[in-house]
Design a protein around this nucleic acid. Structure first.
Lengths: 230, 230
DNA sequence: TGCTCGTCAAGAGCAGTGCTCTCGTTTTTT
DNA sequence: AAAAAACGAGAGCACTGCTCTTGACGAGCA
């Protein structure tokens, strides 16, 4: 009986996947604003209302794409970082940062979907939270291990005590490390995405041309300032 | 004859201003995606096609709003920075950063318009370039004067020579200062907007609650790492 | 003063969107 | 075999940006 039920559910899963695939391709070429349920349906040879059997609204389709994008980015970061020798914490950090940039430049519309302006209302945060922290988890792990290895420069400034509560959501990612390390991760994390967002969203147009080299220098600079040394 | 022509042009200018005002209000409440020419026309008691006498397309209206937003943000930054004693470079820097954050939090949709995902096609970059650099000009001026006053910590790392060409567009804003200062400005600049974008776009939801205090700490940390000391 | 000519608002209309509802058909469940 | 659920198709609603045409008004020239 599972087989018979699976018969229907299998074609359902296949169609669902086909919808998201076509939608992802449209998203990559047209951008989030140009994603059209009717166009997806047209390309599938379906009628537009049939799509609603699989995604109750356009936002739900977008949410699925958002989760996919988070996972794709997170996987790229994890893979790039895993290819670096464990004891070279600076190189691991730079590899992770470079992976974020490379992925963002290669998939600007997907990047805009997850790090740009929130599209319409809000996306469900609960569904995405597991996929969303993969990148910062990598960054946190690098800094944790650097700290445990004694490879981290001592903190120049301690966080004020009233901020102890604020990093509570980061502690599970970096168990045992002092708060000042967490704050340095946050600083590097936000700085990384500040650069990548500027680059992907065109803020460097006609301003910085060789962005790859400039990015590398800036990240090396920033890594040094949060305590990662060669 | 100028008077009679001005009579016509004056009402034209007034209507243009009324359109942008209503559009800005719609933008503030609905977001860029919800800005509708027809709704603007409806609120003015006009018919939708009449709007096209004043703005040839929706994107042109958006471009006008973009320039307005750049100027509003730039002015907020300039004003906040001007209120701080000249010789306290760190306080000036933090005031400028705080102004960016305050403005972004207070006007999230306008902020998204200029620092979020680029909306549809592209906006005209030439018209906006003068308004667009007001914030970074302030940041650059602070660091320049700090350097000239000898209040800047010496650089830890020099930029590689192949990057000399990349900062050519920043030199007019910071005449006479060495490249490493410019790179530190760029690092602080991108880091600042990285934080603000994360905060405005909801990346800190359910993660960091007292964002004002956390922002202050992070900016103080980052200011220290680019050489601004108390 | 009278006559053009450019500017303007209005209206109809086109193509497109997200989404809803209904109606047969097919598949699964009972 | 009968009841229930899932499904695709189609029509339709309200909305969008945008174009084209029509008619009125006012400014400049003869």
């Amino acid at each position: 009986m599972t087989a018979s039920r699976t018969a229907r559910e299998r074609v359902r899963a296949e169609l669902t996947k086909e919808i998201t695939d076509i939608a992802r391709r449209q998203l990559a070429t047209e951008g989030a604003g140009g994603l059209s349920l009717r166009a997806v349906a047209r390309e599938m040879g379906m009628v537009s209302s049939a799509i609603y059997r699989y995604f109750p609204s356009r936002d739900d389709l977008l949410t699925a794409l958002i989760i996919d994008s988070y996972n794709a980015l997170g996987e790229a970061v994890e893979r790039a970082e895993a290819a670096v020798p464990r004891d070279d914490h600076l190189a691991r950090w730079l590899a992770a940062c470079g992976a974020v940039r490379d992925w963002g430049v290669a998939h600007p519309h997907e990047y805009a979907l997850i790090y740009g302006s929130p599209v319409p209302g809000y996306q469900a945060p609960q569904d995405t939270v597991t996929a969303r922290v993969r990148d910062v988890a990598v960054l946190g792990r690098i800094m944790s291990e650097a700290w445990q290895a004694g490879a981290l420069r001592p903190a120049e400034e301690e966080a004020p005590p009233e901020l102890e509560q604020e990093v509570v959501n980061f502690r599970p990612l970096m168990p045992g490390v002092p708060d000042n390390v967490i704050w340095r991760v946050i600083t590097g994390w936000t700085g990384l995405y500040g650069w990548v967002s500027f680059e992907v969203f065109g803020q460097f147009n006609n301003t910085i041309e060789d962005r790859g080299t400039a990015f590398g220098h800036t990240m090396r600079l920033a890594a040094g300032t949060i305590g990662l040394t060669r």
